[in-house]
Amino acid sequence: MADGGHLAYGRHLLADIADTSADVLNDGEALARALTEAALAEGTTVLGTIRHAFEPTGVTVLLLLAESHVSLHTYPDEGRAFFDAFTCGERCEPINIFRRFALTSALGTYRIIHCERGEAGKR
């Protein structure tokens, strides 16, 4: 156990997003809002948000969570984006964050990769 009684365990979700409107993928404000709302609905604690718009297009949004992080990197000209969510402990599910985000963000198709990190159940 790490100091404070927390297990060094978490779940990581990666999503490759395709076939999504350039307008959706270039709206950093709406994407940051949707990511934040999805993370909060899953019960995470959002400690901070960083949003950066690239020229001529593209956005990166990072949410620093008490439980770890959520990130999104968009490529509007290609209709693609990469989503990443990692949550430590057993309380929050990154798949739920992604599902909520996908439902409110008019995403096209996506491929999801899950992995567990650390060792669950070892005390």
Rank of each mutant, 00 (worst) to 15 (best):
P76D: 07
E29D: 15
L7T: 13
S105D: 05
L47A: 12
G43W: 02
I97R: 04
T20Q: 06
P76I: 04
R80P: 00
I50W: 08
A106T: 11
R100N: 13
E78L: 11
I17A: 02
L107N: 04
G5Q: 08
L7I: 14
A81F: 04
I17V: 10
G28D: 13
E78A: 15
L35F: 01
A41H: 02
L31P: 03
A106R: 13
G43Q: 07
A39H: 00
A8T: 09
A39Q: 00
R123D: 12
I112C: 02
E78C: 05
S21L: 06
A34P: 04
A38N: 06
E78S: 11
L103T: 10
I113D: 08
F83E: 02
T60C: 10
L40W: 00
L7N: 14
G4P: 03
E78I: 03
E42Q: 07
L107P: 00
R33L: 07
D3H: 12
F98R: 01
L72S: 03
E116W: 01
A106P: 02
A102S: 14
A18I: 07
D23I: 07
F86H: 08
A32Q: 09
N26P: 11
L14Q: 07
C92N: 13
F86R: 05
G4I: 09
G121A: 02
R123H: 12
V59N: 08
S68A: 15
F86I: 05
A22Q: 11
F54L: 13
A30H: 05
F101E: 10
A38R: 02
A102G: 08
G108Q: 01
D19K: 14
I50V: 14
R51V: 14
P56K: 10
G48K: 06
L65C: 04
A81N: 08
D23S: 15
L7W: 07
L7P: 03
L103G: 12
C92P: 00
G118S: 02
R91N: 09
A81G: 09
A53P: 02
T57Y: 11
A85E: 03
A2W: 01
L14V: 14
Y9Q: 09
E42W: 00
A30R: 09
E55R: 15
L47Q: 14
P56S: 06
C92D: 07
A8I: 12
F101W: 00
H6I: 09
H6P: 04
T45A: 10
E78P: 00
R123Q: 12
A41W: 03
L31V: 11
A34G: 07
R51F: 01
E55A: 15
L103V: 08
E55H: 15
D3W: 02
L63W: 01
A66Q: 11
R33N: 06
A30P: 00
R99V: 14
T57K: 15
R117L: 05
L47E: 13
L64M: 12
D3P: 12
D84A: 15
L63T: 02
L103N: 13
E55G: 09
T49W: 06
A22N: 08
V24T: 15
E42V: 03
L62E: 10
E42F: 00
L65G: 03
L62Y: 12
S68V: 05
D23N: 12
G89I: 11
I95H: 09
L35M: 12
A32T: 09
R100G: 10
L65F: 03
P76Y: 01
